[in-house]
Amino acid sequence: MLRILCLCFYFEPDLSAGSFKNSALVKELAKQLPEGSQVDVITTLPNRYASFAASAPEDERWGNIRIRRVALPGHQSGMVDQSRSFASYARQVMKMTAGEDYDLVYASSSRLMMSVLGGWVSWRKNIPFYLDIRDIFVDTIKDVLPATITTFAMPVFSQMEKWAVRRASRVNVVSGGFVPYFQKHFPGIELSGFTNGIDQEFLDAAPSDQSMLNKPVPEVLYAGNMGEGQGLHHIIPPLAKRFEGKLTFRLIGGGGRLQQLKDNLKAQGCTNVTLDDPVPRHELVNVYANADILFLHLNDFDAFKKVLPSKIFEYGALGKPVWAGVGGFSADFIRENLDNAAVFSPCDVDAAAESFQELEMKVAPRKEFTERFSRSRIIERMAAEIIRTAG
């Protein structure tokens, strides 16, 4: 009989890669744990996008799963707002876990402080700590924040990262591009490589045979965050202008650079771009089904050459042409695993326009890809490892 604490900032019904992964993992843990065991989730009320609100109870039970959702102060996507929101969450975690006994703490982290919080709870309880890393905060922050800030902040962040990672009994990284970083900075660390995967709704929507896409003006779709990391405000306005009359672009989501994207589109005089608010998960598959080309882009930062965006798995399952402005590990992964995909250097409009010529306007199954990266298969192995770590 085990009791596992799961700390994750995003969880069902919120919209984010972290939410989808954590929700699937918690359900699989509950299924694999011995009878009488419990999974305790402390997360937040849906908050991924200011423009998307989904209702969810603050305290909920699914069989042997208990989910408690912390209400956060209103926020946008700025660094100060995010820091204040996390501080509010951390205070509630400390309060809710005081006096409670657990056998292991699992933390899913795309930002450094979740790693530190999970490490702190495991240290206070003297229990194993399983750390799932979705992004290398210390590596990314130097590209995102001004040098005047990072000069003083980086040494502090680095020490916090070292403490959290060394506290972990085992570390999982979602991208193989992260492995060299951790091997260099934490030699001898116990690393796993369970990636993101394809959820069942996308597997259900995968094509069974080939068909042609024959719209006179094909639709290019992007659905997701629109922040500094995605760099859509750099690439979409000039790219859309270049393909005016030949392609339409539909962008669904929100984020810290949405207003700048709108301003840049206006400055370019683009008439072939539609911006829509985020949609619930169950509607997303239909949105993808109506699109012709699936678009992905990351900003031109060195740190992003290590990442592997979860969107690649969704896109790959649907069998449609994939147009991706990524570099490093992501570019290699797409070239090795996806046919009918065009990769170009981030923020390079000329390269994007040239790469578009490589795409075939057709839908075709990618059976080997969907079988290999099924979320359920990946999560099943990851959950088993977490339970073994708990002892």
Rank of each mutant, 00 (worst) to 15 (best):
L2N: 03
F9S: 04
Y10T: 10
P13H: 08
L15G: 00
A17N: 03
F20R: 08
K21H: 15
K21W: 12
K21Q: 15
K21I: 09
E28D: 09
A30D: 07
L33I: 00
L33Y: 00
E35M: 12
S37I: 05
Q38P: 01
I42E: 02
I42L: 07
Y49S: 03
Y49N: 05
A50W: 04
F52H: 10
A53P: 00
S55W: 06
D59R: 15
R61M: 09
W62H: 12
W62R: 11
N64S: 15
I65C: 01
R69D: 06
V70W: 01
M79W: 11
M79T: 11
M79P: 09
V80R: 11
S83R: 10
V93C: 07
M94E: 12
M96E: 15
E100R: 13
S109P: 06
M114P: 03
G118D: 00
G119F: 00
N126K: 13
Y130S: 01
Y130N: 03
Y130A: 02
D132V: 01
I136H: 02
I141G: 06
D143F: 10
D143T: 13
P146V: 09
T148A: 12
F152T: 14
V156Q: 12
F157A: 13
E161G: 11
A164R: 02
V165E: 00
R166C: 11
S169V: 02
S169A: 08
V173N: 05
F178Y: 12
G188E: 10
G193Y: 06
I198P: 00
I198W: 00
D199Q: 14
E201C: 15
F202K: 02
F202I: 11
P207L: 11
S208I: 11
L213V: 14
V220H: 03
Y222D: 05
M226A: 08
M226S: 10
M226D: 06
G229K: 07
Q230R: 05
H234N: 12
P238Q: 04
A240H: 02
F243E: 03
L247H: 08
F249L: 07
G254C: 05
G254I: 02
G255I: 04
G256F: 04
N264M: 10
L265S: 06
L265K: 04
K266G: 14
A267W: 08
G269S: 12
T274F: 12
L275R: 08
L275D: 09
H282S: 13
Y288A: 01
N290V: 11
D292I: 07
F295Y: 15
F304A: 05
L308E: 04
F313V: 04
F313K: 03
Y315D: 09
L318Q: 01
G319M: 03
P321Q: 05
V322H: 00
A324D: 06
A331V: 10
E336G: 07
E336Q: 14
D339T: 11
D339N: 07
A341T: 08
A342G: 11
A342P: 01
P346V: 09
A352N: 01
A353S: 14
E354C: 13
S355G: 08
F356W: 13
E368D: 15
F369N: 04
F369G: 05
E371I: 10
R381N: 08
E385G: 00
